[in-house]
C-alpha cells in the first residue's frame, strides 16, 4: 500500500476525459516523477491527486485514507503541499512573509523553527528574507515557492514543473534541494518537462501518454529502457 496513491483515475475539466485509468503513487522519502509528451495529462494527473478536478471514477488515498471528497484546501490540512507551475509566490510580499503565509493554517508555536529549517535548506532565502519575492531571480522564486509549501510541514510535496524556465545550472541546484527534502522523509511527486534529469533523481517514474500509464518503473530502469529513450528522451 503506497503512502499516497491516485488509483485508476478517470476524469477531465468538464469536457472529454483527459485521464484514462491513470495510476500514480509515491512512498514516504521517495521521489516520484511524472514525464511524458506535451498534452499527455501530466499536470492533470497531479491536479487530480490534489483534488483540483473532479474524478468520474478511481480513488485517491493518503496514508490509507480515502481523501477523494476533500477540497484542495482540506488536502493541504491533511498533509499535502502543492507548488503550482505559475503564480506560486506572493510577488509583493517579502520572502519571509511568503513563508509565513505558507504556515497560515498552522496554529502551533513552532512556525519559527520550520522557517529556520527552510532557511537552512535554502540559505539564499535567509539572505533575502526582507526582499519582495517578485524581485528575486526565477530560480530563487522557485525556492520561495517550495519553501512556502514546506511551511505546512507536509508529508507529501507536489511540484508542477518546478524547473520550467530556469537555466540548467539552476535546475541542477533545485533538483539537489528536492533530493534533500526527500531525505527528510517527505514523499515527493513531481511533473517534469526535463525528463532525463528528473528521472535521474527519481525513485519511481511514470511515463504518461494520452492520459494512460505507458511505462512505470524506477527512474534508473526507465532511463535504461531503450524504448523510453527512443520515444521520450530523444535517443
Amino acid at each position: 500500500m503506497s503512502y499516497l496513491i491516485g488509483e485508476n483515475m478517470v476524469g477531465g475539466y468538464g469536457g472529454a476525459d483527459i485521464l484514462h485509468a491513470c495510476t500514480i503513487a509515491v512512498e514516504k522519502g521517495e521521489i516520484a516523477v511524472i514525464v511524458g509528451p506535451n498534452g499527455a495529462g501530466k499536470s492533470t494527473a497531479m491536479k487530480a491527486v490534489f483534488g483540483m478536478l473532479n474524478l468520474r471514477s478511481g480513488a485517491v488515498r493518503l496514508d490509507g485514507r480515502d481523501i477523494g471528497a476533500l477540497s484542495p484546501q482540506e488536502r493541504v490540512r491533511a498533509g499535502m503541499g502543492f507548488v503550482p507551475q505559475t503564480g506560486n509566490v506572493f510577488r509583493s510580499l517579502t520572502v519571509e512573509e511568503n513563508l509565513e503565509m505558507g504556515a497560515f493554517i498552522r496554529d502551533d508555536d513552532e512556525v519559527r523553527e520550520t522557517m529556520d529549517q527552510v532557511f537552512a535548506l535554502f540559505p539564499v532565502l535567509a539572505e533575502k528574507r526582507r526582499q519582495p519575492a517578485g524581485e528575486l531571480s526565477g530560480g530563487q522564486r522557485q525556492q520561495v515557492a517550495v519553501g512556502r509549501a514546506l511551511m505546512t510541514r507536509p508529508k507529501v510535496l507536489m511540484l508542477d514543473e518546478p524547473t520550467a524556465g530556469v537555466s540548467p545550472i539552476v535546475m541542477d541546484e533545485l533538483f539537489d534541494k528536492i533530493v534533500e527534502v526527500a531525505r527528510t522523509g517527505i514523499a515527493i511527486l513531481m511533473v517534469e518537462q526535463n525528463a532525463r534529469q528528473a528521472l535521474a533523481i527519481a525513485d519511481r517514474g511514470y511515463v504518461l501518454v494520452q492520459g494512460r500509464n505507458r511505462f512505470t518503473d524506477t527512474g534508473e530502469a526507465l532511463l535504461a529502457n531503450p524504448e523510453v529513450r527512443r520515444s521520450f528522451l530523444g535517443g
Partner: peptide, 22 residues
Amino acid sequence: TRTGKAMRAYSDNEDLALLSGI
C-alpha cells in the same frame, strides 16, 4: 499582523492564498 499580511497575500495572488488556507 497575520490578518493584514493575509489580506495583502489575497490581493496579490488569490489562488495561492486560497491554497494557503486564507
